[in-house]
Every structure is written in C-alpha cells, then in structure tokens.
Simulated scan of single mutants.
Amino acid sequence: MRENDANLSAVARAELEEEYAGTRLGRQELSGELLEDVEGALWKAWMLEVEGFRFRPEHLPDLQRVVVAVDPATKSHEDADRTAFTVAGRGYPVETMYGDDRPRGYLLHCEQERFTPTQSMKRAAELYHEHRADCVVIEANNGGDYLPALLEQVDPTVNWRIVHAPRGKRARAAPAAQLYEQARVSHVGSARLFAELEEQMTTFVGQGETEDSPDLLDSAVWDLFLDPLIPPPRGGDDQRLSRCR
C-alpha cells in the first residue's frame, strides 16, 4: 500500500492504517513484507485470511454461550509472564455455506498484562459483566487453585470453572487450530485487537522450554465451547456451562 500512496485518498490511507498497522497482515499488505509460514506452526497465515474470518461486531449472530478464559501468571514482578484473557462466543451463523450447519466460534476480545492475583480476578470479573458472559474459565496448573476463591471475594456473582492441563501446550492447541483450518472461527473487530494473539498463533510450534510461553494463545484454547469434542446444543437448551461452580 505504501508504494501506492499517491493513488490513495488520505481517508483511505487513514482507514487502512487504523485497521491494520502493527498487525501481521499489515506488515504484508501495508509494507509489502513477504511473510512465510513458520515450519511446524499449527496456524498458517491463510487461516487468518479466509473470507469471513474478520467479522464486524454488528453482524454477530445471537451467541448461545460466551466464556472469559484466563491464563494466569504465577508471579507479578516486572519480568514475570503476563496474565492473559480471551473472550469468545459460540453461535450459529445467520447464513451457512455449503450446508455446514455446525456452530462457529467468535473471538470477541483478547488482552494480556502483568497483574497481581487480585487484579487479574477483578479484570476477569469486569470482562465477564462487560460481555455478559456465562462463565469464567481459569487454568490452575501452576498453583492457581486458590484463584476461584479470590474471584468469589472480588465478585460473588461471577460463575467460574477451573481447568487443569493434562497435556502439553501443543496438544491443547491442536483442536483449536483444527477449527481455524475448517474456517469455523472468526475474530470480531479490528485486526489490531488480535495482532499479538495472531502473531503467537502463527509462530508457536511447541518446543517446550526453549520457546516463550504464548499466554494469549494458552487462554484462547481454553474457550471450552470451541472444543470439537463437545457435542452441539441439545434442543437449544444447553446447560453444560450452567454447572460452572
């Protein structure tokens, strides 16, 4: 785009910069970088570029379930990992393609920051109410079993569910990557909101100790309703996530 500046209006340039500057797609489309897929990465660039992947909030269907997923850091000093949050929903698209009537996942929000445990639970509660979520899902592999009790102190109205990871990061991420490969997940809103998550997706290969922990990706794969092993809603009255406590 930048080589074609002379042929673009100022308004068009501003809109493109606002939407894509600082994102992986922006590096390709705005700056002309040739971005090759990372060998072994579960997510490929094309998965984030298929038709319908970028979704506008006003076009969202009614969502049956919305979940806030939290990948908590065990420490909060300046060099510690960041606590990551993702918000995603499950629903049926208004229009189906090729007779595919399976539910789709819609990623609504993601962020990460260094928080104390109390701050992280306060933020989880804020996102829960902001997105009118059904449940907060908290990974508790690293001694975080006390976090639900802390969440109840912060806000006793929040439904929560605690999960433990019996498998490695790559094994946990693979089912979510498969849904992206099937074009059954959309990112809702500006590409800039998801820039860091999408960078983690397209570069994570699961090399264990030698690879940085992809905190946003870790939280995203805990959005339970995206798990392809979970059956579709039964008669429109799916109560599985109502048993959060």
Rank of each mutant, 00 (worst) to 15 (best):
86 T>F: 03
87 V>M: 00
88 A>P: 03
88 A>M: 12
88 A>Q: 09
88 A>S: 15
89 G>M: 04
91 G>M: 06
91 G>Y: 07
92 Y>H: 09
93 P>E: 05
93 P>T: 06
94 V>D: 12
96 T>D: 09
97 M>W: 15
103 P>F: 02
108 L>V: 01
111 E>R: 13
111 E>K: 13
115 F>Q: 11
115 F>R: 14
116 T>Y: 11
118 T>D: 13
121 M>V: 08
124 A>V: 04
125 A>Q: 09
126 E>N: 09
127 L>P: 01
130 E>Y: 13
133 A>D: 02
135 C>A: 13
136 V>E: 02
136 V>P: 01
136 V>C: 07
137 V>E: 01
140 A>V: 14
141 N>I: 04
143 G>E: 09
146 Y>W: 08
148 P>E: 06
148 P>T: 05
149 A>T: 13
153 Q>I: 13
153 Q>F: 13
154 V>G: 09
155 D>H: 06
156 P>K: 05
159 N>Q: 10
159 N>W: 03
160 W>K: 02
160 W>C: 03
162 I>V: 15
162 I>A: 14
163 V>C: 04
164 H>K: 15
164 H>P: 04
165 A>W: 01
166 P>H: 07
167 R>G: 03
169 K>N: 07
172 R>E: 08
173 A>Q: 08
173 A>G: 12
174 A>M: 10
174 A>Q: 11
174 A>W: 02
175 P>R: 02
175 P>E: 01
176 A>G: 12
177 A>R: 00
177 A>T: 01
178 Q>L: 13
178 Q>T: 11
178 Q>D: 14
179 L>A: 12
179 L>H: 05
180 Y>R: 04
